[in-house]
Lab assay of single mutants.
Amino acid sequence: DDVELRDGDWRVELKDADEEILRAVEEAIKNGASEQELRELAERLIR
């Protein structure tokens, strides 16, 4: 699993992620995405 989400800690570690993925995830976090939404976003972007 390349995506690590810690309970109560919104730092997201994406291994080997490019800047576009990181920006998309950071934007989702700023917009108040839930953990499930972040997982789905990350899975779509990593593929």
Score class of each variant (00 low, 15 high):
Gly8Thr: 14
Ala28Thr: 00
Ile46Pro: 01
Ile46Asp: 04
Glu37Met: 06
Arg23Cys: 12
Arg39Tyr: 07
Arg11Cys: 14
Glu27Gly: 03
Glu19Arg: 09
Glu13His: 15
Leu45Cys: 05
Glu40Ala: 12
Glu35Gly: 06
Asp7Val: 08
Arg44Leu: 08
Asn31Lys: 10
Lys30Val: 07
Leu5Arg: 04
Leu5Ile: 15
Arg44Ile: 06
Leu45Val: 03
Asp18His: 11
Ile29Ala: 13
Asn31Thr: 07
Arg44Lys: 12
Leu38Asn: 00
Glu4Thr: 07
Leu45Gly: 01
Val3His: 11
Arg39Met: 08
Ala42Cys: 15
Ala24Phe: 09
Glu4Asp: 11
Leu45Lys: 00
Leu14Asn: 02
Ile29Arg: 05
Arg39Gln: 13
Leu41Phe: 04
Leu45Phe: 03
Arg47Ala: 11
Ile29Met: 14
Arg6Phe: 14
Glu37Trp: 03
Leu38Pro: 00
Leu5Gly: 10
Glu26His: 04
Glu37Phe: 05
Ala24Lys: 14
Leu41Thr: 00
Asp18Ile: 06
Val3Lys: 11
Arg23Met: 09
Lys30Met: 13
Glu13Met: 15
Glu19Ala: 07
Ala33Arg: 04
Val25Lys: 00
Val3Gln: 11
Asp1Met: 10
Arg47Asn: 15
Ala24Pro: 00
Gly8Val: 09
Asp2Val: 10
Arg6Cys: 11
Trp10Gln: 03
Arg11Ala: 07
Ser34Asn: 06
Val3Gly: 15
Glu26Lys: 09
Gly32Val: 00
Val25Asp: 00
Ala24Asp: 02
Leu41Ile: 06
Ile46Trp: 03
Trp10Ile: 05
Ala42Thr: 09
Ile29Ser: 14
Gly32His: 02
Leu38Asp: 00
Ala28Ile: 02
Leu45Ala: 02
Trp10Tyr: 04
Ile29His: 11
Val12Ser: 11
Ala17Gly: 04
Arg11Asn: 05
Ile46His: 04
Asp1Trp: 15
Ala17Phe: 14
Asp2Thr: 11
Val12Gly: 08
Val25Gln: 00
Arg47Glu: 14
Glu43Pro: 00
Val3Ala: 07
Ile46Asn: 03
Asp2Pro: 12
Leu45Trp: 03
Glu19Leu: 06
Arg47Trp: 14
Asp1Ala: 12
Arg11Met: 13
Glu4Phe: 05
Ala42Pro: 00
Ile29Lys: 10
Asp1Tyr: 13
Arg39Ile: 08
Val3Ile: 13
Leu5Lys: 07
Asp18Tyr: 11
Val12Gln: 06
Leu22Trp: 14
Ser34Met: 03
Glu4His: 14
Arg39Pro: 00
Gly8Ser: 13
Ala42Met: 14
Ala28Trp: 04
Leu45Gln: 01
Leu38Tyr: 05
Asp18Trp: 09
Leu14Phe: 09
Asp16Trp: 11
Val3Thr: 13
Leu14His: 02
Leu41Met: 05
Leu38Thr: 03
Lys15Met: 11
Glu26Pro: 00
Arg47Asp: 14
Trp10Arg: 02
Arg11Gln: 06
Arg6Met: 14
Ala24Glu: 11
Arg44Asn: 07
Arg6Gly: 14
Glu19Asp: 12
Leu38His: 00
Ile29Leu: 12
Glu13Thr: 12
Arg11Leu: 10
Asn31Pro: 00
Ile21Met: 06
Asp7Gly: 11
Lys30Pro: 00
Glu40Cys: 06
